[in-house]
Design a protein around this nucleic acid. Structure first.
Lengths: 123, 123
DNA sequence: GGAGCATATTCCCGTCAAGAAATATTACCT
DNA sequence: AGGTAATATTTCTTGACGGGAATATGCTCC
């Protein structure tokens, strides 16, 4: 299980609309601070500050290129998020499965009257 | 593509540690307000307020049971979140694939000197 | 219908974070 | 080294949010 605090930090970082837009924009590839600001109509200090938060959350990393810095996405936090999410999706799928088995059981009981040949899945 | 604002709303709702804890707790099944407060050491008004936010984000729903109300998780927002996430994971897997093909290409160029028999993948 | 429990809402306060403008830092070029 | 472009940081203000206490609503049972 990945550390929970990191997931919350990811949520916090992505809860801000402008940071979310930055991340979405960076999905197209690493970009400079100026390019981000121009594309998203944000002034430069805002972009730098948001990138700072994203960097502290591990969502982006920097690569110096001449006098500008390219920010690009880092997969790790969203992979952790995915791992966290999976626990929930699994539980729901499981519950669906239980529902299925209940349905199956009902069907089995139906056919049981016709043919004495039913099986149960779980113990 | 699910609506983006909903994903941000999900992030916002889960960015608060106590709301996050509530959601984690509810993964074990629907619980009453009092049970949540007792389990997580939160006083009742806080729990109600956090549940309100979670409900407005669609993360929980309520079922009245006698004089108490049972709050349970709703799968939809986290499924949407999963769909959003998949775009990112796909891109990264894709890039890994490209990296693989680059490596393959380099290998091919290596063998090209030995045997004149190399192939390229992409046009 | 009143008593009592479970939950929801309101009010107030402290804190924190985002936005804007100005300034500081860094790196490249000549 | 000075000039300039790109980025980072600071300061300030303001609005939003969480926590606590008190109060309001709703439901059940007698």
């Amino acid at each position: 299980m990945g550390n929970i605090c990191l997931v919350i930090e990811t949520f916090t970082a992505l809860a801000d609309p402008n940071r979310f837009r930055i991340v979405e924009y960076l999905l197209g590839g690493a970009r400079s601070v100026g390019a981000i600001g121009e594309a998203l109509h944000l002034n430069q200090p805002q972009v730098s500050k948001h990138l700072r938060v994203l960097k502290e959350a591990g969502l982006v990393d920097v690569e110096a290129r001449a006098q500008q810095r390219l920010y690009g996405l880092r997969p790790e936090p969203l992979r952790e998020l995915s791992a966290w999410l999976e626990r929930y999706l699994d539980v729901w799928d499981e519950r669906l499965g239980q529902l299925d088995s209940v349905i199956e059981e009902l069907k089995a009981q139906d056919t049981e009257t016709a043919q004495p040949h039913a099986r149960k899945k779980k113990g």
